[in-house]
Structures are given as structure tokens and as C-alpha cells.
Computed example of a mutant assay.
Amino acid sequence: MQQFKIEKPNDDVRSYLQEKIDNLTKPKGSLGILEDLAMQIGWVQQSLSPKLSNPCHIVFAGDHGIAAEGVSPSPQEVTYQMIANFWAGGAGINFLARQHGFDLKVVDAGVNFDFKLEDPIIHKKIRKSTRNYLHEAAMTHEEMELAIQRGAECVQDCFDQDCNIIGFGEMGITNTSSSALWMTYLTGVPLDQCIGAGCDHTGNIINHKYNVLKQSMDNYKGDASLEDIMCYFGGYEMVMTVGAMLKAAELKMMILVDGFIMTNCMLVASKLNANVLHYAIFGHQGDEAGHKLLLEYLKAKPILNIGFRLGEGTGALCAYPIIDSSVRMINEMNSFKEIKVTKYF
């Protein structure tokens, strides 16, 4: 598998950042999470005056063979239909990207549809849908490695556009099923606590979903290694995101992490290289059942908890103004010394 050189940022700058933050014209600690974010971004950028430039958001799209087992109430064609909605500018992620100034890119990682070369999509298709992991591995190790590589290529293109903060989202019917399996194998949390309703707002699908996924686990005869779990139960859009996250951290970019599926991708990325977590900002705690437990496992503190479960990266982009505020705080607030205000704490 492609290796990524991800460094832990040098800690020497942290004391200087803390001193600057503590001496802004406010009581110490009074801006809460803005102070935490300013510290993290300044630490990653090794700068007392961090900046956010040319934010990008990539939606990776792919289909899953397990959809044949009815684990989602939505038919598989919704995946490519939603991609057309992205093109038309009418999806949830579109208005948020416009609102917050993100360059939105949509990537075909493995959609079960034949797009035209002229379609406004980034063509990175591995295969038209993964295989059905109730019966066999979703992808081969060679396909997994190719997905890692192609995800990294997408991030490099954004970096070359002077982007230093990047979000990731997904589109793929049944990818909450694959995410639940990644989670249970890699965290030890029981499967029933990892499974949520996905796009089924009624919750009626959960029992059937559990039974299919439990049978898939019973049928699995692999070695339970990280790479084998990625291959057997993953989605092309998910593995591509893992490669993208690792590359972003290698390039010292800030990574906006969205909901349940994207947090599972960060989980896998962190198992491959723990240093990736230094670059991650967790946008929100989603409404999918296992997301809270997964965030707790990663010791992650999400910015928002507003009942989202859409995916596409919507929760991460909703959190962006708070991240922007943290950088504005450290750069635009006066210090007590500059403004000659007596410290009032």
C-alpha cells in the first residue's frame, strides 16, 4: 500500500500560541472552542498567524454490492441520480459550499453507472460497484491500493490550487452498512451499537440490516487484519477518502471530518498512521447511532451537534464558520498590551 509521511507538528510553537491566545482582550479561556481550534491550526501551520486558504470539498461517490440485500430502503440508482443533483447545484452540500466559499468537486469512485467523459465529474472509477460482501470480498487488495492512490491524487490537485483546508463527503447507498462493519471490527464496539437507520427515517430497516451484516460477519473467513477488513467490507468511495485524508495530512492540510461514514474513514486512516488525527477537525456529531461512540473512541470533540444525518459533508461545512472565527480571533483581536487595557481576569 502507498505510504504517507505524516509528521506530528513540532510542539515548540504551542507555548507561544498559548501566550498569544491568553493575552487577547478577553478573559482567559472565555472563547472556548475557538481557542482550541486556533491552537490546533496554528500548531499544524507552525504559525502565530494561521490562515485558511482556498477551501475545497470533495464528495466521493460509489455503490455497494450489499445493496442487493435490501439493507437500505433507497434503491441503488439514487447514487447516480444524486450526482446529477450535485451538478445541478441543488443538493444540501451545494448551498453550503456556495455559502462558505468552498470549491466543490464530485468524484466517481465506483458508481454503478456509465458517465460520459464530458460530464462534470472527476473520473476515478475503480469498478461499477463493489461486490456483495455477504458472499465475497467487496474489493481486491489491488483495487484497494488503487483507490488509496486515486484519493491521494484528488487531494494533491486541491493542494496545487493553494488549498490548505479540505472537507470530505460521500454519496453511496448502503455505505452506513459498510461503515458499521468497519467500526465494529476496528473498535470492538458490538455490531448492534454501530448500526443506525441510515437514510431510513422510520428505523424500520434496522433489524433486517443487523441480520444481513451479522451474517456477513459470520461468513467472513479472512484474517481480520486492517487491510483485509478495508477490502472485504469497504466501499470504493470510503477507501478513496482514506487515501485522501492521509495525503491531506502529509501535505499539512487541515481536514474537516463529517459524520458517521467520514469518521469511520478517519478511524481507518488513523489505524494506518496515527499522526493523521493531529490534522483532523471533527465538524459535528451526527444522528447515526454509532457516531457518538465512534467519536468517543477517537477522543474527538465535535464542534456541532445539530441532528444531522445527511452525509455529503454537510455537517463539516456547517462547522466551517466557527473554524474561520477561530483564525479571525487569533489574527484580528487586539492584545492587552496593544490596546492598553488592564487584564481583567
Rank of each mutant, 00 (worst) to 15 (best):
K8M: 08
K8Q: 11
D11I: 03
R14I: 15
S15T: 14
T25Y: 12
P27C: 12
E35S: 00
D36R: 02
D36N: 02
A38K: 07
M39N: 09
L48G: 05
S49F: 15
L52H: 10
I58A: 01
A61C: 10
D63P: 03
I66D: 04
A67Y: 12
E69H: 08
V71C: 05
S72P: 04
P75Q: 14
V78F: 09
Q81E: 13
F86Y: 14
A88T: 13
N94Q: 10
A97C: 05
L104T: 01
A109M: 07
V111H: 06
F113N: 08
L117N: 15
E118F: 06
D119I: 01
P120G: 04
N132T: 10
H141T: 10
M144A: 11
E145C: 06
C154I: 04
V155Q: 06
F159Q: 06
F159G: 00
Q161H: 09
C163Q: 14
N164K: 14
F168M: 03
E170P: 00
M171Q: 11
N175D: 12
L186E: 09
P190V: 06
L191Q: 09
C194A: 11
I195P: 01
G196M: 07
H201Q: 10
N204K: 13
I206A: 03
N207Y: 15
H208Y: 11
Y210P: 01
Y210K: 07
V212G: 02
L213S: 05
S216Y: 13
D218Q: 07
D218W: 05
D218N: 06
A224H: 15
A224I: 12
D228C: 01
I229H: 07
C231P: 01
F233T: 03
Y236R: 02
E237A: 03
A244D: 11
K247L: 03
A248V: 03
A249P: 03
A249R: 11
L251G: 01
G259N: 09
N264W: 05
A269P: 01
A280K: 12
G283N: 09
Q285H: 08
D287W: 08
E288P: 00
L293G: 00
A300M: 13
K301D: 13
I303N: 12
L304N: 14
L304V: 14
N305A: 13
I306V: 12
G307D: 08
F308C: 02
L317N: 01
C318A: 09
C318G: 02
Y320Q: 05
Y320N: 02
P321I: 03
I323P: 02
S325T: 07
S326L: 04
V327T: 07
I330E: 12
E332V: 04
M333S: 08
F336M: 12
V341T: 14
V341K: 15
T342K: 08
